[in-house]
Amino acid sequence: MKLSKPISRNGQRVLTTGQLAESFGTDSKIINRNFQRNADRYWQGKHFYALSGEDLREFKGSRQNDDSLKFTSILYLWTEKGAWLHAKSLNTDQAWDAYEMLVDEYYTNKENLVPLNEKQSLVALMKLSAITAEETEELKLVTTEHSNKIQELETKVEQQITLDHGEQRRLQKGVARRVYEFTDDKKEAARLFKEIYREIKDRFGVASYKDVKRQELQSAIRYIENWLPRKVS
Rank of each mutant, 00 (worst) to 15 (best):
L20V: 03
R214N: 08
Q168A: 09
H165K: 14
D104Y: 07
A95S: 05
D55I: 00
K149R: 14
T143D: 13
R63H: 15
T132L: 07
S52H: 11
N34Q: 08
G53N: 06
Q44I: 11
L163Q: 08
H47R: 10
F24Q: 02
T136P: 00
W78A: 02
K127Q: 12
E145Q: 10
R203C: 00
L51C: 07
E118I: 09
Q94I: 08
L163T: 05
K127E: 12
H47C: 08
L171E: 00
A87F: 01
Q36A: 13
L116N: 09
Y209L: 01
H146N: 11
W78C: 03
K140Q: 14
R13Q: 11
K119W: 07
T26A: 06
D27Y: 11
F35G: 03
Y223T: 06
F204C: 00
K186C: 07
F193V: 04
V232Y: 02
Q151F: 09
Y106C: 07
E111G: 13
Y223W: 13
N32F: 09
Q64R: 10
Q160W: 04
S68T: 15
Y180N: 14
T16P: 05
D66F: 01
L15M: 10
G61C: 06
L90Y: 08
H165L: 13
E137S: 06
Q160E: 14
S8A: 10
W84P: 00
L69K: 07
W78P: 02
E138G: 05
I196H: 03
V14H: 05
Q64A: 13
A39Q: 13
H165T: 12
L192R: 02
E105H: 12
Y223N: 01
M1P: 05
A190G: 14
F35P: 00
R63E: 02
D67T: 12
E80D: 15
K186M: 08
E111K: 12
A39V: 13
I30M: 07
A130D: 14
F59E: 02
K186L: 11
N38I: 03
T183V: 07
G166D: 15
E188V: 15
I221C: 01
E111C: 04
E152Y: 10
L15W: 02
K173F: 02
S28Q: 09
G11N: 10
T136G: 00
E181Q: 09
E58H: 10
F193D: 06
W227Y: 10
D104Q: 15
D185E: 08
S23T: 08
E105K: 15
T155K: 14
A189N: 06
I31C: 05
Y197I: 01
N91E: 07
G61S: 11
D164W: 08
L51R: 02
S129Q: 14
E58T: 09
R33G: 05
L163G: 03
S28E: 10
K88F: 08
W43P: 01
R63I: 01
T108Q: 14
A189H: 04
Y107A: 02
R177G: 04
S4R: 13
Q64F: 06
P229N: 03
D184Q: 11
Q160P: 01
